Amino acid sequence: MVPYIVERFRKIGWEMEMFSLPKRIRNKGQEEIEFDTFDWRPYAGNLVVERYIQTYKDYLWWTKLRLKEQKYDLIHAHHPIAALAMSRVFPDIPVVMTVHSSFERELMLNGRIEAGGAEEKFLTSIYRELEQRTSRLTTVSHSFAAYMGAFLDHPERIQVIPNGYDEKRFKPISHDNEVAQLVTVCRLVPAKGLDILLQGCAELRKRNRPFVLHMIGDGPIREELETMAQKLGIYDDTIFYGYMLHPEELLPFFDVFVLPSRAESFGSVFAEAALCLLALVGTNVGGIAEQIENGVNGLLVPPEDPVALADALETFITDPHFRYEMARAASNKAKKTYSLNRVIGELKRNYLSLTEGLDEGESVEETEES
């Protein structure tokens, strides 16, 4: 989303620069790290913590090397380490931080760390540090704002700005598939519930409901999923694509988007699938439940429930008219609620309130001539 935001702001005359830490920069930073709100040293020795601290050091080193003499009115960070580094290097410049997801929950769901362990305690302590060090905290869903707020002194100050998309990128195509085409797009990791998806599709096979499942994405459990599909007897009905740079170019040819995630801060791919005019099936968790109203613009199912998932998919497979109505409703909501224009407007108000004293409630249009 960020490159499209930068491009849109440039078109209206705002100079913007994108800055990130290149992958080739490793172990360059040597500066000692201190946090304002907690002592990180009790967590030292844990691999996740050590990598986080070293990445922070590298980001500080790279920022000072490349940006120290630059003059900015405002910095908008989209990763906690970026926000922490920028606030150190540019202490007099407002920093907006958008927290897009929970690193600790992802690591726990993917079996990388244990709940309640040192790594989770360290990573959740970062939220309060961000609250202390940035001018404004935003996130992408009310669900994640509630989660993050448990670790803050002033959770009421979190702003929710859902992701936005340029609908010109998405081009629905009229088609009539004889067999229902199901698709999922994600990184192949345990947190996405893809084992539940395969079990749900196996249940469809038992019910003699024909389908083809398209799995777009790659990740550490791909081989495990392929083996599972073979054991469940649905390998011939499943296509593993691997990583794809622009899946939105292929999505319009499918019928149903399905992703039974175990957790999701927002679930960007649901909005993208909706803009491609696909019917949506998701789990009743996090930001997914804010995008889908069950039976109104898609179907929600409980997590960890392959039978309920199969029931929802079967509903769409056997009732193309209902499927189309849900897809239309999902598309209409995505265009209205998750438009890039809306995001630009909200960000513009945010930026001006921090740099020019504009009240956040003031209309963007009132500032166009200033």
Rank of each mutant, 00 (worst) to 15 (best):
A115K: 15
A115R: 15
Y127M: 03
E104Y: 14
R105S: 03
I126W: 00
P94H: 07
T124W: 06
E106R: 08
E106Y: 10
E120Y: 08
V99H: 03
A118K: 14
E114K: 15
G111M: 09
F103E: 13
V99L: 13
L123G: 00
S101D: 14
A118I: 07
Q132N: 15
M97G: 00
N110Y: 11
E129I: 03
I113V: 14
A118Y: 10
G117P: 06
Q132Y: 15
E129N: 06
R105Q: 12
E106Q: 12
F103Q: 11
T124L: 11
G111Q: 08
V99R: 01
T124D: 05
N110A: 08
V96L: 10
E120L: 06
M108G: 01
E104Q: 13
F103H: 09
I113W: 04
R105L: 13
F122D: 00
M108A: 11
T98H: 05
T124E: 10
A115L: 12
I126Q: 00
K121Q: 15
I113N: 00
L130H: 01
G111H: 10
R128E: 09
A115S: 15
M108Q: 11
S101Q: 10
E120G: 04
M108H: 03
I126G: 00
R128G: 02
G116C: 08
E104D: 14
A118Q: 10
S101W: 11
L123W: 05
E131K: 02
L123F: 08
T98S: 11
V95A: 01
L130V: 01
L123N: 00
Q132C: 14
L107I: 05
E114N: 13
G117W: 09
G111A: 09
V95Y: 03
M108K: 07
I126T: 02
E119L: 06
L130D: 00
I113P: 01
E119T: 05
E120C: 05
E129W: 06
F103C: 07
R105E: 13
R128M: 08
E131S: 05
E120M: 07
S101V: 05
G111T: 08
